[in-house]
Simulated assay, not measured.
Amino acid sequence: MIADRKDDHVRLAVEQQQQHHGRNQFDDVSFVHHALAGIDREDVCLATGFAGISWRVPLYINAMTGGSQRTGAINRDLGIAARETGVPIASGSMSAYFKDPDCAGTFSVLREQNPDGFVLANVNATASVDRARRAVDLLRADALQIHVNTVQETVMPEGDRSFASWAPQIGKIAAGVDVPVIVKEVGFGLSRETVHLLEDLGVRVADLGGRGGTDFARIENGRRELADYAYLTGWGQSTAACLLDAQGAPIPVLASGGVRNPLDVARALALGASGVGVSGTFLRTLLDGGVGALIDRITTWLDQLAALLTLLGARTPADLTHRDLVIHGGLREFCADRGIDTRAFAGRSGGRDGAHETTGDRR
């Protein structure tokens, strides 16, 4: 049954990707164009650093799948793509491995195909400390993602209905493993209040995982006989809204959810993300064109991201947090209601073309 559910998730996620390449709230974020701000491409470095973690690039393949023969083949190709492009990669939820150790290879293939890369294991918030350690050991993981998905569990026919223990258990896992812990929402967003709570729990990094990409409430509703939770489609905050809400957060944040192109990556970095994760777009690329097509897509994105930094006069991804932005539309309304002054973003560069500073690591 678990394997069937994992295969259903892949099928329904790809169907969503085929339907929603339209507008999302990243389109409410615009860079102010300064015609003489550009720098030389050779001066741009895509490396990013946060919470003691160093990545060669600020783009990563975010958690997707594992637990069945088909999803194991997908993970094999994702691992190859990560190896060939140098991007970090996160495993899908490893709950299936704890229930059926025979499917371990559908996850460990990520490390087998990418022996020297940065790999993140992935468990849910109810995992025991022992299981969290086993997940890290299986993948020889460099970090551990803990995914939180109360909305998905609520809609999932066989889902969890007891959430009170999640926060204390996250704290136990964070204290009990030897790698950095990153808590990741699965597409409904982390509020500023939640990010502050995560810091109190000992979590090192928050992956905001906002609305705009794969909608797991919609996926799980598609698995229900009556599809009676349709009204929860679109629940939560967008990734752009979460980034604005998390300004001044006590821990570094990553951005994922609804990232459609390299401009969205640049927007997320400019709004304060230390790295940007992509799942659905890369999954569809892989399934439509194979691993070669995915390698080409990631390579192109990195090349174009470097071009955007060159255009914007940013030597590093962190420098984008000093580039002028205009926030408009529904995103501006969200900020007004949450007490966020969007005007401050429009003059961050100091008001002069070509103000090129280097900021280094974010934290």
Rank of each mutant, 00 (worst) to 15 (best):
H328F: 04
S238R: 12
A81N: 09
G360Q: 13
A255V: 00
A273N: 12
V151D: 04
G38F: 02
A307S: 04
P101F: 08
R218M: 14
L305I: 04
L244V: 07
T85W: 04
I170H: 13
S256N: 11
L294D: 09
F216C: 13
S162T: 15
L197K: 15
D341P: 05
A96L: 06
D4F: 00
P262D: 08
P250D: 01
K6D: 00
G171S: 14
H20D: 12
G272C: 04
S279D: 06
G212K: 14
N114H: 07
R134C: 12
R343V: 07
D178R: 06
G86Y: 10
A82E: 10
D207I: 00
V136E: 06
L197I: 06
F31A: 11
T150V: 14
A273G: 08
V291C: 07
R223N: 05
G67L: 00
R23H: 03
H34I: 15
R5A: 00
T316E: 04
G117N: 10
D200C: 08
H34P: 14
L283E: 00
G117W: 05
R260E: 11
A227R: 10
G210A: 11
T48Y: 12
S128N: 13
G117Q: 05
S238V: 08
P101V: 15
D137G: 05
V203A: 07
A174V: 04
T233G: 10
A164V: 06
W55S: 03
D116S: 03
L311Q: 10
M156D: 09
Q145K: 15
L198E: 04
G236S: 13
D28G: 05
V326H: 09
D288R: 02
G292R: 05
N149H: 09
F50T: 01
A230T: 13
V129D: 07
H196D: 09
M156F: 11
